[in-house]
Amino acid sequence: MSAPAQQRPLGRRPRDADAILAPVARDLGRAAAAALYDELALSPKPGLVTLISNGSHDDMDARTFFRSIAALRGYFVRIARLGMAGADFEALERAGIEAEARMLAATGGINTHRGAIFLLGLLCASAGALIAAGRPLTPAALQAMLDERWGAALHRRAQRPSMLPGGMAARRHGLRSASEEAALGFPAVFDVGVPAMRSARTRGLSHERAQLDTFFHLMAALDDSNLAHRGGLEGLRFAQQTARGFLADGGAAHPFATARAEALGQEFEVRRLSPGGSADMLAAVCWMVRIGAVDAVDAVDGR
């Protein structure tokens, strides 16, 4: 995978668009898989699996995530192509269900990336639709396209009761579910994660420190149903308050940010807390960095 300095923005659709749509879909999909690696490689990351820690998990490690990412590479390319072709939500959902089956087959039934399949898949489809329409890739344009093409279907989906652990925890505690977050256009990603990443980069934080700062901003703001499932409402509020304290004390710009995050990780592991929803959203922001969207002018269209 190429380093961030070697990444190139994906631009407007040229005249010979039909000849280049397939390679662009490949680039979007590869960036999504690379963003999942970015999220995995970030360390320390309290409660979550990294290259050197299993976090709060006994059933998965970095090798599990590598197998999962490898199984999902083709999916992200495929769903970007579906977005380019103007596919309806049912086609996107079928692709996601098939990708989840491949993930579970690769991991022996362990859920490593179910949330990322949903979130990053929709974003790849939205990017594909923008490229096909000749519109620039910016965060605002991605969010607007998501609502324009699939917003009504996402609102209908949000009315369906989820039988997944995170969905049931959200319903039990009166939290916003992942489906509801999607129906609203992923505000945690676009209103919290992207501004946090932009701010960190503007302040000159290193690539890793910018990711760490973004992660803590997401954890501070998001009603992460993974945390609610594992630790109840008390566990969720503990994680949010911990993240806010980390940020109030300088965040990732603090000279001892790494040591502080490692210490927090030990507390998370004692409580068996794992902010998986925040990790998925961090991956989404990393994907936008890789395709050049975070640094793009934030306009809804290019007119």
Rank of each mutant, 00 (worst) to 15 (best):
P4V: 08
A5G: 14
P9N: 15
G11C: 06
R13D: 02
P14T: 12
R15V: 05
R15F: 10
A17M: 06
P23H: 05
P23Q: 07
A25Q: 04
R26T: 10
L28C: 11
G29E: 01
R30L: 14
A31P: 01
A31N: 00
A32F: 02
A32E: 05
L36G: 00
L42W: 02
L42S: 03
L48C: 07
L48E: 01
V49G: 00
T50Q: 08
I52V: 15
S53P: 01
S53H: 14
D61M: 08
A62N: 04
F65T: 04
I69Y: 13
G74E: 01
Y75M: 02
V77T: 14
R78F: 08
R81E: 07
L82T: 03
G86V: 08
A87N: 08
A91M: 09
A91L: 11
R94F: 15
A95Q: 00
I97W: 12
A99W: 15
A99L: 05
E100Y: 06
A101L: 08
A105I: 04
T107C: 04
T107I: 12
I110V: 15
I110P: 04
T112E: 05
T112D: 01
R114K: 15
A116V: 02
A116F: 04
L119G: 09
C124K: 09
S126D: 01
G128K: 11
L130V: 06
A132I: 03
A132V: 01
A133Q: 09
G134W: 13
P136N: 10
P136Y: 14
L137I: 15
T138H: 10
A140V: 12
A140M: 13
A141M: 10
A141Q: 03
E148D: 08
E148G: 07
E148I: 09
A152S: 11
A153P: 02
A153S: 08
A153Q: 12
R157F: 10
R157K: 11
Q159C: 14
R160Y: 14
P161S: 07
S162H: 02
L164Y: 07
P165S: 04
P165Q: 04
G167V: 03
R172Q: 13
H173M: 13
G174D: 06
G174I: 14
L175G: 06
S179R: 12
E180F: 05
A183L: 07
A196T: 04
A200H: 06
R201H: 08
S206M: 14
S206K: 13
Q211G: 14
L212T: 02
F216C: 12
L218W: 09
L218T: 05
D223G: 11
S225T: 13
N226M: 10
R230A: 07
G231V: 00
E234A: 15
G235T: 10
G235K: 02
R237D: 04
F238V: 08
A239Y: 01
T242I: 13
F246R: 09
L247C: 13
L247S: 12
A252Q: 00
A253S: 08
A253T: 00
F256Y: 14
T258M: 14
T258R: 14
A261T: 02
E262A: 15
L264P: 05
G265L: 07
R271K: 10
L273I: 07
P275Q: 01
A279L: 03
D280W: 14
M281V: 05
M281W: 05
A283Y: 07
V285S: 05
V285I: 07
C286T: 01
W287P: 00
V289W: 04
V289G: 08
R290A: 10
I291Y: 05
I291D: 00
A293H: 11
V297F: 09
A299T: 11
R303T: 09
